[in-house]
């Protein structure tokens, strides 16, 4: 465990908590893509099935359980508790365009053709594109609440830190997982445009709004 990996996990956790708190405190999930949240919950559920098969560390298991519970809680808040505030009209990204190709790819390109491994690969590929419905929603409405942009920032930061973590592990441990690295790169690139807006607008105290 290096500092980049730990910082990555922490910012991932911060992102998840920010989103949960935002929805809970404002009693509203306006501007949040329920579809992205369902995708993230599916990512965690399919990836962390190994909770039942192997034990890596207390840290590893507890983080997995926290991620899964928080993501399912978020889906529950969006689709049940605060459903009335959910902006379904603007959450129109066609998720089948992500899930079907990602599903197909995970059957074709994986480390081992076994159910657990295919599900793990599926979750890695799916995570890399799971934010697209959320970004699509923001591009459609042309704006995002500042707290939502903080959520996206920490989610992107987590991916960026994981990339540094992989460079570190490659040099110091000879660790190299091409599937995770390529998917992680794709995922980080998707945040670049957003990062630019975050730095140029949100950090200067302006609301994130896109030119019409």
């Amino acid at each position: 465990m290096n500092i980049f990996r730990l910082a990555g996990d922490v910012s991932h956790l911060v992102a998840i908590i920010i989103l949960l708190l935002k929805i809970w405190k404002t009693r509203s999930c306006a501007g949040i893509s329920g579809k992205s949240q369902i995708l993230f919950a599916s990512v965690f559920v399919t990836r962390y099935l190994d909770l039942f098969t192997i034990f890596i560390s207390l840290y590893n298991s507890s983080m997995k359980i926290i991620y899964i519970s928080c993501s399912i809680a978020t889906v529950y808040l969006v689709y049940f508790k605060f459903k009335a505030t959910y902006d379904g009209n603007h959450d129109t990204f066609r998720v089948e365009f992500l899930v079907v190709p990602v599903g197909g790819l995970s059957f074709l390109v994986n480390h081992d053709f076994s159910p657990m491994e295919i599900l793990w690969t599926f979750s890695i590929y799916l995570e890399s594109v799971a934010i697209l419905p959320q970004l699509f929603m923001i591009s459609k409405t042309g704006e995002a609440e500042t707290i939502t942009t903080h959520y996206l920032f920490f989610l992107g930061l987590y991916r960026g830190l994981y990339l540094i973590n992989w460079i570190w592990r490659y040099y110091f441990e000879g660790f190299f997982d091409l599937i995770a690295i390529v998917a992680g790169l794709v995922q980080t690139v998707l945040y670049c445009d957003f990062f630019y807006l975050y730095v140029t607008k949100v950090l200067k105290g302006k609301k994130l709004s896109l030119p019409a």
Binding site: R5, W120, N165, G174, F175, L178
Partner: peptide, 10 residues
């Protein structure tokens, strides 16, 4: 020899 996979990451 590079280790291909080692699922200790989250």
């Amino acid at each position: 020899q590079l280790i291909v996979k080692q699922k200790d990451e989250l």
